[in-house]
Every structure is written in structure tokens, then in C-alpha cells.
Design a protein around this nucleic acid. Structure first.
Lengths: 201, 201
DNA sequence: CCGGAGTGGTGACATTCGTCATGGACCGGC
DNA sequence: GCCGGTCCATGACGAATGTCACCACTCCGG
């Protein structure tokens, strides 16, 4: 019996997934969580075989949670389901040791099959997402450029970004400028959109 | 027996909802659709009693779809479930004759109950969403301000917005400026975020 | 040990943006 | 018919932003 932990902030989805997976032979949902913290606590108590994580949780993202789970609950393998399949996340997830990555557009039977694959130590990535990731390529941004661009995402002025990043305004503008040109954007706001679309921030 | 149509682009959610609702007495899922067009076609064929629609479908939003369903399939009542409960949408939905509006964070039993309520001609709105909608109030923006702000959403420079809106750059800046001040934002990009969060664009 | 890449910074310059005052045209309500 | 609100526009001013050149430091790989 494969013991599964579900983590998704949407109650409806969570209980629905539970219903779906329960119909499958050899799969049992032993715990549910709405937040990453809750999921960690649950995983410590129940030591599930596979954790099915939503990409976006209220407190952190599913990739960070997966890393924590690997560290704290060694026997637990992880897989991520997501509504918005941005390519960049896939790379980060795979690099973080996540065993499966699929969009919520897949069918229930595929989900169950992937749970089994991941439990057996295998990996599965949705073919369409994989294709997107390959065509999108790596982020051309450096670490700091990404940081600064992320801080610029909410439309904050340069000065505030500078304070939050502990940089001088001039440096911030340099980073934003180079990021925008790398992304083929006319300004930082367009750059934010491009980077978001590719999952680079 | 209440005959239900499901419309959601996420296969996983759709089949999961089907599984959930099938467990309920007196509810039967007779059709599923991944797009609005598909949902319309299905509704014409099956004439469901209640249509459960996702707010965001690939081709249009659930509110537009609900309006079309009311026009083309008279006996069909509608309700909307959504991941992102932006207040503005709720108002538009209610104005469009939608019978139920709830976030996907609700439990399965609530969902089933709302299906029954809506089928009986009643209305149900998630209390939290309702509170948000009331506190958020109506959009303070005029029609043109909304238009221009929407065009500004992708980070385009003023000149491009002006061309796309058939306005002079000066006028565009005036609208953006007044929109930003109405929304309490320091600049148009922050204004876009605020308006998005409230469902005003 | 040298070069390249990344990081952090300064200063200058042109452009864009935000803001305000002002004006005219149009429409609906009193 | 007048008033108020919205729509569209112009011009001008200062602040914010984008761009460029240039510098110093660190770290890593060849």
C-alpha cells in the first residue's frame, strides 16, 4: 500500500484528489495539509511514502517544501502538481530532487500512475511541460538580477527596491537595466512579465 | 436527481469533482467540458439542471459563459467556483444571474449543499468573499481609466498604450495618474496590481 | 596566474513618467 | 438652461527611470 500525503490549500481539490486516489488499488491517502508547515508536521507524524504537493502554497512554494521534506523525512518521495506550468519551476523542482511534475490538466489515471512511478523511485515529467522547458531554456539572469527583478515585481519604485535589497539605487538601476535588455523588454515592468511567463522569477 | 455539468480546464479537478459529487445522494454529473465552447455544446445536448463553472476557462471567463448558458439553455442554473476570489468578479457574477459563487477552499460537503441550493433556485455566496466584496466596494475607476490601466498591465510604455487606445500620450498619462491616485498607488504598475487584486480589471 | 564573470558602486545624460493647471466638447439630471 | 461629471487634449515642470562608461573587488577555471 502506497501511503500518500496531500498538500494543497484548496480544500475542494484536496478532498477531491483524496476521493480519486482512494479509488485506486494500492494507494491510500494518510494525511492532508493546507499549508507547507502543516504538511511538514503531518509528514513527521505519518512518514508517508509519497507527498503530492501543490506548486503554490500559502506559506512557501512546493519546491521549497519538497526540499524540506527530503531533509526531514528521508523515506518520503515527492511530486508536484500545478495549475500554471511555468518552465522554470520544472527545472528547479527536478534539481531539488522532486520525482514528478505535472499540470492539473492531466487525467486521474495518469496521476495515479505517476504516484506509483514516483513511489518506485522513478521520475515522470509531463511531456508538454518538458518540451516547454527545453524550448524556453535557462534563465539568462544572474542571481542578483533575479533578486532585484523579483523585488520590482509589485511595482515598487527603485528606492524601495534598493532598501529592500540593501543596494544603492544606482546599482539597482544597473541590474534592472541589464535584466530588461537580456529579456528583450523595454522596461523593468515588461521584464517582470517576461520573467514570470518563463518561470524565471 | 440533479443533473450537473462541470466546466473546468483542469482535467484532474474536473474528474475529482465528478468523483466527489457522485458520492452525494441525488446528484449526477452528466457532462464535463474543458472549454467554454465545449460547455455550451454539452449544455445544449444534455440540458443540465446546474452548471458548475470554473471562473477562468481557456476561451472566456465563467461569467460570460454563464450569461450564454442562461440565454441558450433556459432551465440551466449556474454557479462558479474559483481559485482566486477577487471581489469584483463576484459582483459581475451576481449581476449576470449566477446562483452560487465560492472559492475552491470550501469543503466538498459545502459544494454539494450549494449545488442543491442553486438547483432549488436559491443563491449562495461564500461569506468571506462576500465580506471582501462589500469592504472592497465598487471600482472607483471610470470606464476609460479601466481600459487604459488594462493596456498598461503588461508593462508597455505610455506611447504604445496611446497607440493601442487611440489616445494621445498626454491623455494616457492623465488617466493613469488619476487611476493610480484613486487606487492609492505610487505608480501605474502598482495600480495594476491593486486593481487586479480587487478584480477591477 | 591570468581572464572572465559576477557583484557593487559612481556619475552623467536623455528619456520617460507623474502631476498639475487649463480648456473644450459632450451628456444627463435638476 | 445650467451644473456637474466624464472624456479628450495640451503644455510645462520636476522627479523617476533607462542607459552608458568606467572602476574596484572577489571568485573560479583554465
Amino acid at each position: 500500500m502506497i501511503r500518500v500525503l496531500l498538500a494543497d490549500d484548496e480544500n475542494l481539490i484536496r478532498s477531491a484528489l483524496r476521493a480519486l486516489l482512494s479509488l485506486e488499488d494500492g494507494i491510500e491517502v494518510v494525511a492532508e495539509a493546507a499549508t507547507a508547515d502543516e504538511a511538514l508536521a503531518m509528514a513527521r507524524s505519518y512518514a508517508p511514502d509519497v507527498a503530492v504537493l501543490d506548486l503554490q502554497l500559502p506559506d512557501r512554494d512546493g519546491i521549497a517544501l519538497a526540499a524540506e521534506l527530503h531533509a526531514e523525512v528521508p523515506g518520503c518521495r515527492t511530486m508536484i502538481v500545478t495549475s500554471h506550468g511555468r518552465p522554470g519551476y520544472l527545472k528547479r523542482a527536478l534539481a531539488g530532487g522532486v520525482g514528478g511534475f505535472l499540470p492539473k490538466t492531466v487525467s486521474a489515471s495518469v496521476l495515479a500512475q505517476v504516484v506509483r512511478t514516483v513511489h518506485a523511485g522513478g521520475r515522470y515529467v509531463d511531456p508538454e511541460l518538458a518540451a516547454e522547458a527545453i524550448s524556453a531554456g535557462d534563465s539568462p539572469l544572474t542571481a542578483r538580477e533575479s533578486d532585484v527583478l523579483e523585488l520590482a515585481a509589485e511595482g515598487a519604485p527603485v528606492e524601495e527596491i534598493a532598501r529592500r535589497a540593501a543596494l544603492t539605487p544606482g546599482t539597482v538601476r544597473n541590474y534592472l537595466s541589464s535584466a530588461a535588455s537580456k529579456l528583450g523588454a523595454a522596461n523593468r515592468h515588461e521584464a517582470v512579465h517576461v520573467a514570470r511567463r518563463h518561470g524565471w522569477i
